[in-house]
Computed example of a mutant assay.
Amino acid sequence: MSLRVGVVGATGKMGRVVCAQVLEDPALELVAAVARSNAGAPFDTYVGRSTGLPVSDRREALLEARAQVAVDFTHPDAVLANARWYLEHGLHAVVGTTGLGPDDVEALRALAEKNGTNAVVAPDFSFGGAVLLHIARIAARHFPYVELLETHLPSKAEAPSGTTMNTARELAKVRPSPSPVVTSRELAPGVRGGEVAGIRVHSLRLPGPPGIEEIRLARAGELLTISLAAYDRAPFANGAVLAIKAVASRPGLTYGLGPLLDLDGD
C-alpha cells in the first residue's frame, strides 16, 4: 500500500519539484496539494501531468484526503504554525521550510512526543548538504578560524539562509574555543558580514545556481575550503522523499538529514 502524502506550498518552486518526485515514486501517493493562492485551480498545470487534484488553500484538505504525511515547503512566517497544526492533527511532518530557530524545534519535539506523531525537520534536505555539514563538524574541532559564505538568488526570502544559520550554530557547538579576535577596522559598515553563534557569515544574493554554501576554516599556514553548489532544486526534493518514507518509523522529531544517512555523530 502506498504512503499518502500531502504537500503544503505545493505550487511554489520547491513544492512543485517535491510533488513531481512524489508522483514518480510508486511507493508514494500524492493526495493533497495545498497553497495560499489559486484555490480550485487544477494542480496538473503546476506539475505538467494528470493528478486529478485541485489546489486547496485549506490545511484541512490534508485530513479530508486522509494524508499520512504532510510535507511543508512554505514560508518562514508560516512554518511554525503549520508544523504545530500537522502534529496536533495526527499527521507525520516533513518540514523543509527554513525559519525555525532552536527553541521552535524543541517546542515541536515536545509536541510530537505529546501527540505520538513524528517529524523530520531539516533546513537543508540535500544529501550534499548533510555530508558537507558532517565534514565541517569534524574540521571545526581543529581549525580556530571559521567563516561562512553563502550565495542565493535575489528572491531568497531571508539572509542568511536557514541552512547557513544552522551550519553556524552546529559548528559553534563543536569548536573548542571562539575564533581569535580579528582587529581589522571596517571602512564600510557591515563589510565584515554578520555574526551567528560567534561565526562570521557573508550573504550574497545573485542570479545563478539556487544555492552555494562555502565554509572556510583556517589555522596558521593552512586554509581549508568546503563548498557545495546546488544547480537546481532536485537534490533537496531527493532528501525530502527519503524523509517522507522514513518519518513514520522515526519516533519523535529528527533534526537534519544526517541521521537518515547514518552519518556518525548526526
Rank of each mutant, 00 (worst) to 15 (best):
V7Q: 03
V8F: 07
V8G: 00
A10G: 07
M14P: 00
G15E: 02
Q21P: 08
V22A: 06
E24Y: 05
A27I: 07
E29Y: 10
E29L: 12
L30R: 07
A32I: 04
A32W: 01
A32R: 01
A35C: 13
A35Q: 04
N38C: 14
G40Q: 10
A41D: 09
F43H: 06
D44V: 04
D44L: 01
G52S: 08
L53F: 00
P54H: 14
R59D: 04
E60W: 03
A61G: 05
L62S: 01
L63P: 01
E64W: 00
A65I: 02
A67D: 00
V71N: 02
D72A: 15
F73P: 03
H75S: 13
L80P: 02
A81T: 13
A83R: 07
R84E: 03
L87I: 00
G90E: 00
L91W: 01
A93H: 00
V94C: 05
V95M: 06
T97Q: 05
T98R: 13
G101C: 06
D103W: 14
E106C: 08
L108T: 05
A110L: 15
A112S: 04
E113S: 14
G116M: 06
T117A: 09
N118L: 11
V121G: 02
A122R: 09
P123N: 08
G129A: 09
G129L: 09
A130F: 03
V131S: 01
L132N: 06
L132P: 02
L132Q: 07
L133S: 11
L133N: 11
I135H: 13
R137W: 06
A139W: 12
Y145G: 11
V146F: 08
E150P: 07
L153K: 15
P154Q: 07
P154M: 05
S161R: 10
G162K: 05
T164Y: 09
M165E: 11
M165L: 15
N166P: 03
N166C: 15
E170M: 13
L171P: 01
A172C: 01
V174T: 04
R175C: 10
P180H: 01
R185K: 12
L187C: 11
E195T: 14
V196H: 09
I199Y: 11
V201P: 01
S203Y: 11
G211R: 14
I215D: 00
G221C: 13
G221V: 11
L228W: 02
L228H: 08
A230K: 13
Y231C: 12
A234H: 12
A234I: 12
A237L: 12
A237G: 11
N238K: 10
G239S: 11
G239D: 06
A240D: 09
A240L: 02
L242T: 05
V247T: 06
R250A: 07
R250E: 06
P251F: 12
